[in-house]
Simulated assay, not measured.
Amino acid sequence: MEVFAVEGLPEVRAGDDLAAMTGERVDLQPDDVVCVASTVVSKAEGRTADLADYEAGERARRIATRAAEEAGEDRDPRFAQAVIEASEELLMDRPIMLAVTRFGHVTVNAGIDRSNVPGSDLLLLPEDPAASARRLQEGLGARVVVTDTSGRPFRYGQRGVALGWAGLPAARDWRGERDREGREMEATVQAVVDELAGAANLVTGEGDGGTPVAVVRDFDFGDHAGDDDLFRTADDDLIRPAVREYYAE
Protein backbone atom coordinates (compact mmCIF):
# COMPACT_ATOMS: atom_id res chain seq x y z
CA MET A 1 0.00 0.00 0.00
CA GLU A 2 1.24 3.48 -0.86
CA VAL A 3 0.22 6.78 0.72
CA PHE A 4 1.18 10.13 -0.78
CA ALA A 5 0.09 13.76 -0.47
CA VAL A 6 -1.40 15.70 -3.38
CA GLU A 7 0.86 18.68 -3.90
CA GLY A 8 0.09 22.15 -5.19
CA LEU A 9 -3.48 22.74 -4.01
CA PRO A 10 -4.13 26.47 -3.60
CA GLU A 11 -6.04 28.05 -0.73
CA VAL A 12 -9.58 26.70 -0.99
CA ARG A 13 -12.43 29.20 -0.92
CA ALA A 14 -16.21 29.00 -0.73
CA GLY A 15 -17.69 27.64 -3.93
CA ASP A 16 -14.50 26.01 -5.20
CA ASP A 17 -14.84 22.66 -6.95
CA LEU A 18 -12.61 20.65 -4.65
CA ALA A 19 -12.96 17.46 -6.71
CA ALA A 20 -11.82 19.24 -9.88
CA MET A 21 -8.97 20.99 -8.08
CA THR A 22 -7.74 17.63 -6.78
CA GLY A 23 -8.27 15.73 -10.01
CA GLU A 24 -6.18 18.26 -11.93
CA ARG A 25 -3.18 17.50 -9.73
CA VAL A 26 -3.15 13.72 -9.49
CA ASP A 27 -3.81 10.86 -11.89
CA LEU A 28 -6.28 8.83 -9.86
CA GLN A 29 -6.93 5.14 -10.26
CA PRO A 30 -10.39 3.63 -9.69
CA ASP A 31 -9.37 1.76 -6.52
CA ASP A 32 -7.62 4.73 -4.89
CA VAL A 33 -8.89 6.10 -1.61
CA VAL A 34 -8.73 9.90 -1.52
CA CYS A 35 -8.49 11.25 2.02
CA VAL A 36 -9.58 14.88 2.19
CA ALA A 37 -9.16 17.06 5.27
CA SER A 38 -12.45 18.39 6.57
CA THR A 39 -10.91 21.87 6.72
CA VAL A 40 -10.83 22.24 2.94
CA VAL A 41 -14.22 20.55 2.58
CA SER A 42 -15.64 23.11 5.00
CA LYS A 43 -13.97 25.99 3.19
CA ALA A 44 -15.34 24.87 -0.17
CA GLU A 45 -18.80 24.53 1.37
CA GLY A 46 -18.65 27.99 2.94
CA ARG A 47 -18.66 26.76 6.54
CA THR A 48 -16.92 29.84 7.90
CA ALA A 49 -18.33 32.16 10.54
CA ASP A 50 -17.42 35.22 12.58
CA LEU A 51 -17.80 35.64 16.30
CA ALA A 52 -20.01 38.63 15.56
CA ASP A 53 -22.54 36.20 14.08
CA TYR A 54 -23.29 34.82 17.55
CA GLU A 55 -25.13 36.34 20.48
CA ALA A 56 -24.01 34.61 23.64
CA GLY A 57 -26.79 33.10 25.73
CA GLU A 58 -26.81 32.50 29.45
CA ARG A 59 -25.07 29.13 29.27
CA ALA A 60 -22.37 30.42 26.93
CA ARG A 61 -21.64 33.33 29.26
CA ARG A 62 -21.46 30.97 32.22
CA ILE A 63 -19.06 28.65 30.39
CA ALA A 64 -16.81 31.55 29.37
CA THR A 65 -16.78 33.04 32.85
CA ARG A 66 -15.83 29.76 34.46
CA ALA A 67 -13.17 29.05 31.82
CA ALA A 68 -11.70 32.53 32.34
CA GLU A 69 -11.53 32.00 36.08
CA GLU A 70 -9.75 28.67 35.67
CA ALA A 71 -7.36 29.86 32.96
CA GLY A 72 -6.72 33.33 34.32
CA GLU A 73 -7.47 35.00 30.99
CA ASP A 74 -10.53 36.30 29.19
CA ARG A 75 -12.62 33.84 27.16
CA ASP A 76 -15.09 34.97 24.52
CA PRO A 77 -18.62 33.72 25.31
CA ARG A 78 -19.51 34.00 21.63
CA PHE A 79 -17.17 31.08 20.91
CA ALA A 80 -18.98 29.01 23.51
CA GLN A 81 -22.24 29.96 21.83
CA ALA A 82 -20.89 28.83 18.45
CA VAL A 83 -20.01 25.45 19.95
CA ILE A 84 -23.46 25.12 21.52
CA GLU A 85 -25.20 25.91 18.23
CA ALA A 86 -23.03 23.43 16.30
CA SER A 87 -23.80 20.66 18.77
CA GLU A 88 -26.61 18.25 19.33
CA GLU A 89 -25.50 18.02 22.94
CA LEU A 90 -22.69 19.24 25.19
CA LEU A 91 -21.66 16.21 27.22
CA MET A 92 -19.45 18.40 29.38
CA ASP A 93 -18.69 22.10 29.43
CA ARG A 94 -15.84 22.12 31.91
CA PRO A 95 -12.86 22.10 31.81
CA ILE A 96 -13.42 21.60 28.07
CA MET A 97 -16.50 21.64 25.87
CA LEU A 98 -17.02 18.06 24.70
CA ALA A 99 -19.74 18.08 22.08
CA VAL A 100 -21.80 15.58 20.15
CA THR A 101 -21.99 16.93 16.62
CA ARG A 102 -25.22 16.74 14.66
CA PHE A 103 -23.83 13.88 12.56
CA GLY A 104 -22.73 11.82 15.58
CA HIS A 105 -19.03 12.59 16.05
CA VAL A 106 -17.97 13.39 19.63
CA THR A 107 -15.17 15.92 19.83
CA VAL A 108 -13.88 18.99 21.66
CA ASN A 109 -15.47 22.33 20.69
CA ALA A 110 -17.71 20.57 18.13
CA GLY A 111 -14.64 20.47 15.90
CA ILE A 112 -14.69 24.26 15.34
CA ASP A 113 -11.29 25.47 14.17
CA ARG A 114 -9.80 28.89 14.77
CA SER A 115 -6.58 28.50 12.76
CA ASN A 116 -5.93 28.83 9.02
CA VAL A 117 -9.26 30.57 8.36
CA PRO A 118 -8.44 33.55 6.11
CA GLY A 119 -10.95 36.36 6.44
CA SER A 120 -13.07 34.72 9.15
CA ASP A 121 -12.87 33.87 12.84
CA LEU A 122 -14.17 30.30 12.78
CA LEU A 123 -14.30 27.23 10.57
CA LEU A 124 -17.10 24.78 11.32
CA LEU A 125 -17.06 21.11 10.39
CA PRO A 126 -18.98 20.09 7.26
CA GLU A 127 -22.67 19.95 8.00
CA ASP A 128 -22.97 16.40 6.61
CA PRO A 129 -19.54 14.84 5.98
CA ALA A 130 -21.07 11.67 4.52
CA ALA A 131 -22.87 13.73 1.86
CA SER A 132 -19.66 15.69 1.25
CA ALA A 133 -17.79 12.42 0.70
CA ARG A 134 -20.42 11.19 -1.77
CA ARG A 135 -20.18 14.40 -3.80
CA LEU A 136 -16.39 14.15 -3.89
CA GLN A 137 -16.58 10.49 -4.88
CA GLU A 138 -18.84 11.38 -7.78
CA GLY A 139 -16.48 14.11 -8.93
CA LEU A 140 -13.26 12.14 -8.48
CA GLY A 141 -14.35 8.66 -9.51
CA ALA A 142 -12.54 7.19 -6.50
CA ARG A 143 -13.31 6.17 -2.95
CA VAL A 144 -13.28 9.08 -0.48
CA VAL A 145 -12.73 9.59 3.24
CA VAL A 146 -13.30 13.03 4.81
CA THR A 147 -10.86 13.30 7.70
CA ASP A 148 -10.18 15.37 10.79
CA THR A 149 -7.70 15.27 13.65
CA SER A 150 -8.96 14.46 17.09
CA GLY A 151 -7.64 13.80 20.56
CA ARG A 152 -8.11 10.48 22.34
CA PRO A 153 -9.22 9.59 25.85
CA PHE A 154 -6.41 8.21 28.03
CA ARG A 155 -3.66 9.26 25.59
CA TYR A 156 -1.73 12.39 24.66
CA GLY A 157 -1.62 13.59 21.09
CA GLN A 158 -3.98 13.67 18.15
CA ARG A 159 -4.53 11.37 15.20
CA GLY A 160 -6.58 11.31 12.03
CA VAL A 161 -10.17 10.10 12.16
CA ALA A 162 -12.89 9.70 9.54
CA LEU A 163 -15.94 11.99 9.59
CA GLY A 164 -17.53 10.81 6.35
CA TRP A 165 -16.77 8.23 3.68
CA ALA A 166 -18.08 6.97 0.36
CA GLY A 167 -17.27 3.99 -1.84
CA LEU A 168 -16.18 1.65 0.94
CA PRO A 169 -17.59 0.42 4.24
CA ALA A 170 -16.48 2.07 7.46
CA ALA A 171 -15.18 -1.15 8.96
CA ARG A 172 -14.10 -4.71 8.33
CA ASP A 173 -16.36 -7.03 10.28
CA TRP A 174 -14.33 -10.01 11.47
CA ARG A 175 -17.14 -11.52 13.52
CA GLY A 176 -17.79 -15.10 12.53
CA GLU A 177 -14.28 -15.57 11.09
CA ARG A 178 -11.69 -17.78 12.78
CA ASP A 179 -8.48 -16.85 14.57
CA ARG A 180 -5.23 -18.82 14.26
CA GLU A 181 -6.43 -21.28 16.87
CA GLY A 182 -9.70 -21.90 15.08
CA ARG A 183 -11.79 -19.95 17.59
CA GLU A 184 -14.68 -17.96 16.21
CA MET A 185 -14.19 -14.19 16.55
CA GLU A 186 -17.16 -12.56 18.29
CA ALA A 187 -16.34 -8.88 18.78
CA THR A 188 -13.67 -7.60 16.36
CA VAL A 189 -14.84 -4.85 14.00
CA GLN A 190 -11.88 -2.97 12.49
CA ALA A 191 -12.47 0.75 11.90
CA VAL A 192 -10.83 0.85 8.47
CA VAL A 193 -11.76 4.42 7.55
CA ASP A 194 -10.17 5.70 10.77
CA GLU A 195 -7.00 3.75 10.00
CA LEU A 196 -6.90 5.18 6.48
CA ALA A 197 -7.42 8.68 7.92
CA GLY A 198 -4.53 8.09 10.32
CA ALA A 199 -2.28 6.89 7.50
CA ALA A 200 -3.18 9.95 5.44
CA ASN A 201 -2.44 12.26 8.37
CA LEU A 202 1.15 11.00 8.45
CA VAL A 203 1.80 12.54 5.02
CA THR A 204 -0.55 15.52 4.97
CA GLY A 205 1.04 17.19 7.99
CA GLU A 206 -0.19 19.99 10.22
CA GLY A 207 0.17 23.75 10.61
CA ASP A 208 1.23 26.09 7.83
CA GLY A 209 3.05 23.38 5.89
CA GLY A 210 0.17 20.93 5.68
CA THR A 211 -1.28 19.51 2.49
CA PRO A 212 -4.99 18.75 2.81
CA VAL A 213 -5.41 15.78 0.45
CA ALA A 214 -3.70 12.39 0.42
CA VAL A 215 -4.15 9.34 -1.80
CA VAL A 216 -4.01 5.79 -0.50
CA ARG A 217 -3.16 3.47 -3.39
CA ASP A 218 -3.42 -0.33 -3.53
CA PHE A 219 -5.44 -0.63 -0.34
CA ASP A 220 -7.40 -3.87 -0.43
CA PHE A 221 -10.45 -4.10 1.82
CA GLY A 222 -10.21 -7.86 1.57
CA ASP A 223 -12.79 -10.61 1.57
CA HIS A 224 -14.57 -9.49 4.73
CA ALA A 225 -18.06 -8.41 5.56
CA GLY A 226 -18.45 -4.64 5.70
CA ASP A 227 -19.93 -2.65 8.53
CA ASP A 228 -20.97 0.99 8.26
CA ASP A 229 -21.53 1.83 11.92
CA LEU A 230 -18.77 4.08 13.21
CA PHE A 231 -20.39 6.58 15.57
CA ARG A 232 -21.97 4.96 18.60
CA THR A 233 -25.54 5.93 19.30
CA ALA A 234 -26.51 7.29 22.71
CA ASP A 235 -28.23 3.99 23.52
CA ASP A 236 -25.14 1.97 22.56
CA ASP A 237 -22.55 4.09 24.36
CA LEU A 238 -21.36 3.12 27.84
CA ILE A 239 -19.35 6.30 28.41
CA ARG A 240 -21.78 9.00 27.30
CA PRO A 241 -24.40 8.44 30.05
CA ALA A 242 -21.71 8.45 32.74
CA VAL A 243 -20.21 11.72 31.49
CA ARG A 244 -23.66 13.24 31.14
CA GLU A 245 -24.60 12.30 34.69
CA TYR A 246 -21.32 13.49 36.21
CA TYR A 247 -21.49 16.91 34.58
CA ALA A 248 -25.22 17.45 34.97
CA GLU A 249 -25.95 20.89 36.36
Rank of each mutant, 00 (worst) to 15 (best):
G164T: 01
A86E: 15
T233F: 10
Y247M: 07
A234W: 14
R232P: 13
V3F: 04
T101Y: 00
A110K: 01
R135Y: 09
T211F: 11
D113C: 00
G111S: 05
G164K: 03
Y54H: 11
F154G: 11
S38D: 01
A5V: 13
G119T: 00
V100D: 13
R244N: 02
V117M: 00
R13N: 00
S120M: 02
E181Y: 08
A52F: 04
E138P: 10
E181N: 08
L90A: 03
G72L: 09
G72H: 11
T107I: 15
E177G: 06
P30W: 12
A131F: 01
G151K: 06
D237K: 06
A86M: 13
E70P: 01
Q190V: 14
E89P: 03
F221H: 12
G176M: 10
V108Y: 14
E249M: 06
D93V: 12
R232Y: 13
L140Q: 13
D227K: 08
L230D: 07
V144I: 11
E206D: 10
D227L: 14
P212W: 00
A171W: 07
A99I: 10
D32K: 11
R232F: 12
G15H: 03
V3N: 06
S132K: 04
E69T: 14
I96N: 03
A242S: 05
R152F: 13
F79K: 06
V83E: 05
H105K: 11
D218S: 08
A142F: 03
R59M: 13
R217M: 12
V203H: 01
G23D: 07
F154Q: 10
D148T: 14
